[in-house]
Computed example of a mutant assay.
Amino acid sequence: MSTPRFLDLPPGVAPQKIETPQGTFAALDARPVSGVIERWPALLVPGLTGSKEDFIAVLMTLAQSGRRVVAIDQRGQYETPGPDEPAAYTCPALGADVDALAQIIGGGDPVHLVGHSFGGLVAREAVIDGRTKFASFTLMSSGPGAIEGRRALGGRKIMAEVDAFGLEHVWTHRLEPEALANDVSDDILAFLRKRLLTNSPTALACMAKQVLTMHDRTDELRQIEVPTLVLYGEHDDGWPPETQSEMADRLGADSVVVPGAVHSPAVEAPETTAAALVRFWNAAEKHYLDTRSGVL
């Protein structure tokens, strides 16, 4: 079967397998078309039912800012295999994967870390655990604790249905009707089905439980000296925009509201999202270099 058009990779973006002490991770690796890498790299971590493909629309723009940008499938997601052991899918365990990936991708340089939705909770673990020095951290449509609202209800249903009936049932009775209601094209529908059914059922159920029960670690994150950005859509239906705004205030973090976007700014408003990330990353690097040189 041919690759769906929306998955055609832009120039400078290629699929890759990244070997780490934690295992092998499927990735999309974006580099400047010119081939010149002048800035620190970035690592992008997707959400609960997502994958590296959720970042396709922003990868080329981000890489053209002069850096390598890597989007991954987390352990047990889509093209990254995972075990049937539930303990492998706690946020601390998944955060250790992020540490391992960042250390390899950075090659000694700090890495800009972005976590979308549940991926933000996972990435936060990597920042707090202190194993890796990150250049910056972006929480994209991700909140301080357990997810709220409509998506919380959906997460509970997914967790129960995966346990009781399996992934095919979840697709047929929940995700496919939702996609059809949103007029999703046939090629995207085929990809979404393939992606869901390739997930580890154990991973999906355990990740859903994590996103529904996560406690607030904002105060712990604030203690980590890393430039932080809170970026979210103005109509986010996961963590309410006001919740994310309050989290940014508690963190003393920069905050960007993406007009018109809901829960997936990198898909719904890619140019605005990419521009905000590049501005933030460049400012974080300048601040680091100014601090190192004694400039205040």
Results as ranks from 00 to 15, higher is better:
residue 179 A to Q: 04
residue 171 W to S: 08
residue 153 L to M: 10
residue 163 D to I: 02
residue 188 I to G: 12
residue 148 E to I: 03
residue 159 M to C: 11
residue 194 K to I: 02
residue 187 D to V: 02
residue 146 A to L: 00
residue 175 L to T: 02
residue 180 L to A: 06
residue 179 A to G: 02
residue 145 G to K: 04
residue 188 I to Y: 14
residue 183 D to S: 12
residue 178 E to I: 10
residue 191 F to Q: 01
residue 191 F to S: 00
residue 189 L to T: 01
residue 168 E to C: 02
residue 151 R to P: 05
residue 173 H to G: 07
residue 182 N to M: 13
residue 146 A to R: 00
residue 192 L to H: 01
residue 161 E to L: 10
residue 183 D to I: 08
residue 151 R to Q: 10
residue 157 K to S: 13
residue 186 D to A: 09
residue 152 A to Q: 15
residue 176 E to K: 14
residue 188 I to D: 13
residue 166 G to F: 10
residue 164 A to I: 13
residue 191 F to Y: 03
residue 170 V to A: 05
residue 172 T to S: 07
residue 175 L to H: 03
residue 189 L to C: 00
residue 177 P to Y: 09
residue 165 F to D: 15
residue 149 G to N: 02
residue 182 N to L: 14
residue 151 R to V: 13
residue 165 F to L: 15
residue 164 A to Q: 08
residue 171 W to R: 02
residue 150 R to Q: 10
residue 155 G to F: 09
residue 163 D to R: 09
residue 173 H to F: 05
residue 151 R to W: 15
residue 184 V to Y: 07
residue 166 G to L: 06
residue 157 K to M: 11
residue 186 D to F: 04
residue 166 G to W: 11
residue 173 H to L: 05
residue 170 V to G: 03
residue 161 E to S: 12
residue 155 G to P: 08
residue 161 E to T: 04
residue 164 A to D: 15
residue 169 H to F: 10
residue 191 F to I: 01
residue 154 G to P: 13
residue 157 K to Q: 14
residue 146 A to V: 01
residue 180 L to R: 12
residue 155 G to K: 04
residue 175 L to N: 05
residue 157 K to D: 14
residue 166 G to N: 04
residue 158 I to G: 02
residue 161 E to K: 12
residue 188 I to K: 15
residue 176 E to M: 12
residue 182 N to P: 06
residue 169 H to S: 11
